[in-house]
Amino acid sequence: MDTSPAAIEVENLTVSYGPVPALLDVSFAIPPGQLVGVIGPNGSGKSTLIKAILGFVKPDLGTVKLFGEPADHAIGRVAYVPQRGSVDWDFPVTVRDVALMGRYGHVSWWKDLTAEDKRIAEEALEMVRMSEFRDRQIGQLSGGQQQRVFMARAMTQGADILLLDEPFAGVDAATEHAILDVLERTKASGRTLVVVHHDLSTADEYFDALLLLKQRLFAFGPPATVLHPELLCEVYEGALRVFADLSAKGDSQ
């Protein structure tokens, strides 16, 4: 009987852009089917970690393995959902076009997309409840809808691992729950999700596990253990409000 490999296994990962490391000696293993939040102050290396998992930055040291294979052998197994601010919303593509982009990796450049590809894209749009908007240009959508379109694209990619960069940034509470609902359902279909998150007050209810990062990995585990006031105080030095909020939460329990 073999033990199934971790979805994402990072070992002794060190990445640097200059004299200061962006990530230092980070090791963790995320089992498949989990919804994991990555938290940490600004500039703590959250996006670098995502880039390293995607295989975009060359680590100074260490390895990233996806399902037991080196990351660069696992092209297509990871899908990336960009931050909303980094997308050109005026680009002439419709909702359906974006969903279909997920199939690009499965078809040779010069061949047409098949009916099967279109069906998969349609199903993904159905799942995120965006089918009725399929012919809208992406700029004509609300923030939450835009996020869902990119979720659909990640799903049509057929990837087992989804990396999301701040999906909850700049959306209202109702939208946040709609997005969370999609994340939960994606998880229920057996996929692994890694989400960069900035709102500590919701981190404990949204995620199965949290990665607390500031260059080094400060903690990785269930939210209850990671959101330890002393630990947070060490990582978010001076960010007193966060600390106060959390201790208030602890008092009321």
Binding site: L54, G55, F56, I75, G76, V78, A79, Y80, P82, V87, D88, F91, V93, M101, Y104, G105, V107, W109, W110, R153, Q157
Partner: peptide
């Protein structure tokens, strides 16, 4: 015409293009 899809993708979302091996 032949490279329409990859060209569309690198113009729209470079990160995704690279992540699927374009």
């Amino acid at each position: 015409i032949l490279c329409f899809r990859p060209l569309q993708l690198i113009s729209f979302d470079t990160v995704m293009a690279a992540s699927i091996g374009i």
